[in-house]
Design a protein around this nucleic acid. Structure first.
Lengths: 253, 253
DNA sequence: TAAGATTTGTTCGTATGTATC
DNA sequence: GGATACATACGAACAAATCTT
């Protein structure tokens, strides 16, 4: 009887992967914070009794996950590096590359979450933040003259939502909304989305953003929520005309 | 004048990282699907004119992101591998390790999303799925006798929500809810969460799950949404007693 | 069962690049 | 500019896993 036979479904983890896990644990155990220095390559070789190549593969694994950053030169080495929101979005986008998301799916989420964000932001922002949002909303006062301009304006509108998401106190709520804004932006930039410019709906959208900033300024959560809900309903109607579109792209880092 | 000076803020990307990006693009350009074979190590060496070590580091990067899997032996090599939901959750958890999420944040999201999921599932499930959910809800008919048992029951309850999330047609909605269920499960298992067993609230939660399955069976979206909303309100009250808890752990793969 | 073929896995020695002092 | 301390990259050799015969 050999109890140590491994499950053939779960392939044997290679040494670099195991070393990466050990390093991760090594960091967690010591509760190292962002910027803390990890042992050097040669120290790792001694610590884990593996060759340089194996250590380097392990480091690349951690680096790909955004957990460490590496610098050359004296005083260089590997350091604990906070995973950036941008990297997290990229890694998550890889997952949805295979998932056949539709625009309807995204708008179902936005309908549920964006009003919540709007309400939670009322009365929480300082003047500079409110002014910045207002400036974003006030760009492109004129209706688009060409499909290209239309595209730009739509990206700008999504930027408004992305900025809003960064201000969220609830980082999970902010991340999910920012993630959706990014997907929609990529779709707008790389694909032709919103082909038929709909001037009237566009104007309503712009109006909504300005109304929202006003409500946030007044600290009126109820109105902020209502305005955003109405905005989402309008945007969704804009989508309804579009075919169900599939996300199918690796998104660059 | 040297126009090719690089920005010192954005460190030079190492060769393995660049090769990984090229391979990724190589795959996207050819629209390779899950299971498609990539060039062998030796072919990569020729293709990108780099050493074996560099190729291997590049492969580890892609592997860490879940984009490829690798097998040894004849017929082995690297293959396009769909990113699993489990891996996506792990990678995202790495991000939130640094983000100071509170239980209040998670429950704000659940309040907004779980009722939406419940409503969208009404009338969409077959008998086997409904029976499975019912079986999950019917576990632990008796109130917990010990803190340990209490913990087990709470994990089981979260399993109900996790299973529900897998059934979602909207993969983004399902993923986010599943992610939260996982975080809460980890917190329950690794930390002492819900220390004071509250029998009454627990019973209400169990009742809600059974009511929800019944509503789903009837295809009654309105009732499903209402039941879930009530369930979330109850669960949140359960949380209110708890201190604001911080997520602070790398979550294992 | 055993041998051979194929492909990834791991090590080591050496050389080069890069940033600091 | 030179010395120093790191990571980066290469190439050759050997080990291990796995499929075929």
């Amino acid at each position: 009887m050999d109890g140590s036979r491994r499950d053939p479904d779960r392939p044997r983890r290679s040494r670099p992967v195991r070393v990466a896990e050990e390093i991760k644990q090594w960091v967690v155990e010591r509760d190292l914070k962002r910027g803390a220095k990890l042992p050097s390559e040669s120290e790792m070789i001694g610590l884990f009794q593996v060759s340089k190549g194996t250590v380097r593969e392990a480091m690349r694994i951690l680096e790909a996950q955004g957990l460490i950053v590496t610098r050359t030169g004296p005083g260089g080495g590997s350091f604990v590096g906070e995973v950036s929101a941008e990297r997290a979005r990229s890694l998550l986008a890889n997952y949805f590359y295979f998932q056949d998301l539709s625009l309807a799916d995204i708008y179902q989420m936005r309908r549920a979450l964006e009003p919540e964000l709007a309400a939670s932001l009322a009365g929480q922002l300082d003047k500079a933040q409110l002014d910045e949002l207002q400036a974003l909303a006030e760009r492109h006062p004129q209706p688009a003259q060409s499909p290209e301009e239309e595209k730009q304006q739509h990206v700008a509108s999504l930027e408004f939502h992305a900025r809003l998401s960064e201000l969220a106190d609830n980082r999970l709520l902010g991340f999910v909304i920012g993630f959706m804004a990014r997907i929609l932006t990529d779709l707008t930039v790389y694909r032709r989305l919103y082909e038929p410019p709909n001037v009237e709906l566009w104007q309503r959208g712009r109006r909504h953003q300005l109304d929202l900033v006003a409500a946030l300024r007044d600290g009126d959560a109820v109105r902020a929520r209502a305005v955003m809900a109405s905005h989402m309903a309008g945007a969704e109607a804009m989508m309804a005309a579009q075919e169900a579109q599939i996300m199918r792209q690796f998104m660059a880092e």
